[in-house]
């Protein structure tokens, strides 16, 4: 039963991701991405990590994606953007990246399967309690750092996204 759910989720995630990278409409792509993230959340649950699954849904699929939606809407590209994407996604643009990535994938898989002797081991359930204990004991310093990073991101994003008249006026030579 778990296996079936896993495979369905894995297939959903893969297909949705593929749709993201090939989609021509930004909003569609974003929706595909959300699907993919949700599928991965399911997989997290299967791997006995419900806390991670929850975070995935809340933070990733929720907060971050909303942020992106806002930006897409602010850019307000419309149909012209779709045509533009169509032109950029000509088939010949795909060969090189696909080849490179395929090689990389093969290598990764080779590496993953080269240490395959312990594959029969069980998966363990790790609940939020254990994660919380680890976070606030062993990783406390890292947590502080992460909070600072978030603060910096907040301030930086605010500063960068401000709409400044003067700067736009000198747009041509802001190269």
């Amino acid at each position: 039963m778990t296996a079936v759910i896993f495979y369905i989720s894995a297939a959903t995630a893969t297909v949705a991701t593929a749709m993201v990278i090939s989609s021509r409409n930004a909003v569609h792509a974003l929706l595909h991405l959300i699907v993919s993230l949700l599928a991965i959340a399911v997989i997290f649950t299967l791997y006995g990590a419900p806390f991670a699954a929850a975070l995935e849904v809340i933070v990733y699929a929720g907060a971050i994606m909303v942020l992106m939606i806002f930006v897409i809407m602010m850019l307000n590209q419309g149909d012209a953007a779709v045509d533009q994407e169509k032109a950029w996604l000509a088939p010949k643009n795909w060969y090189g990246p696909a080849l490179l990535t395929a090689i990389l994938l093969v290598q990764l898989l080779l590496l993953i399967f080269s240490g395959a002797e312990e594959s029969a081991q069980r998966i363990h359930y790790i609940g939020p309690t254990e994660v919380g204990i680890a976070l606030f004991s062993h990783y406390i310093l890292a947590v502080e750092l992460a909070s600072m990073l978030l603060l910096a991101g907040l301030v930086g994003a605010f500063h960068l996204a401000r709409h400044k008249r003067i700067e736009t006026s000198e747009a041509p030579d802001a190269d």
Partner: peptide, 22 residues
């Protein structure tokens, strides 16, 4: 609480590799 054997390390990593490559 041990669960079933199927979602094991290798399949998970493989999925992760595929997603990364995509």
């Amino acid at each position: 609480m041990p669960t079933e054997t199927l979602p094991d390390l290798l399949t998970g990593l493989t999925l992760s590799a595929i997603l990364f490559c995509l």
